[in-house]
Design a protein around this nucleic acid. Structure first.
Lengths: 133, 133
DNA sequence: TTGAATTTGGACTAATATAGTCCTATATAT
DNA sequence: ATATATAGGACTATATTAGTCCAAATTCAA
């Protein structure tokens, strides 16, 4: 089944939380407590969002996270790749597919699957975080 | 990451194979050999397609499978649900969600996620097998 | 300058889903 | 009868996702 990961769900919830408390720094602990998201897991997610320049972080006491962009400037697609990495819908379409795609010889559907992937990407690119807050 | 399952890939390849050898009955063994799909796995997939009335099966010697509908009458969505079951993009959106959705109290994104799910479904419903053969 | 609050990040375990296998039963044409 | 099929349950293996644990680095403030 096609499913967005829990991590992406958590990321969306966190971004909404941060967006709602606008400009005030919010800590991972705060989001975790208020939104019932496992703290350690959330921390990792926020770090990834920071590494993708979606969030700004301040370490140390009184530290926390804040948005680095307006929510309508963050495509859902970027969030997904930031958190889950590659988003190809089939193994054989991965950019850096190390393992020989078992289908290369016999795969009869590579082209249409690629088209489908493009359409899904376009959909996820057309959505931004502002659609979720 | 969002990914269609190998089983759905195999199903698409099998349907293309059956579609190409039109009206002649083709056996699971034949598809398996020609398309490098594990036989046992393929058998299960074909059985599911048969149970969804996408294929017709004939048991016994000289048996095999044939299409029950034109490929443009089979939405990709139906294929996916036939093979992988429920297609909700998030656990909390499952129809028959047995387990309490951990997000019910605190989930802030259920509505927009539901909208996204609808759009994905529409996309998969708009594609038919004829797009893959 | 110490301590508490915070982010950072590696390594690990647990849980779940997907992929694949094995075996036996049932149907049918010859 | 027998060979060739589909039908389908039960099982194992593999991969992915989710979650945990621990230690380090940073920063504020008393």
């Amino acid at each position: 089944m096609i499913r967005i990961s829990k991590k992406v769900e958590y990321a969306l919830m966190a971004l909404k939380f941060i967006s709602d408390s606008d400009h005030k720094l919010v800590t991972a602990r705060e989001i975790s407590d208020k939104s019932n998201i496992p703290y350690d897991l959330l921390s990792k997610i926020l770090q990834k969002l920071k590494n993708e320049n979606i969030l700004i972080s301040n370490q140390g006491m009184n530290g926390g996270y804040s948005l680095n962009k307006r929510t309508d400037e963050i495509p859902l697609f970027n969030l997904m790749t930031a958190i889950d990495g590659d988003t190809s819908i089939a193994e054989c379409l991965q950019d850096n597919s190390v393992k020989d795609c078992c289908l290369t010889d016999t795969c009869t559907i590579k082209l249409p699957v690629t088209r489908l992937q493009k359409e899904l990407e376009d959909l996820f690119k057309s959505k931004t975080i502002s659609d979720f807050v």
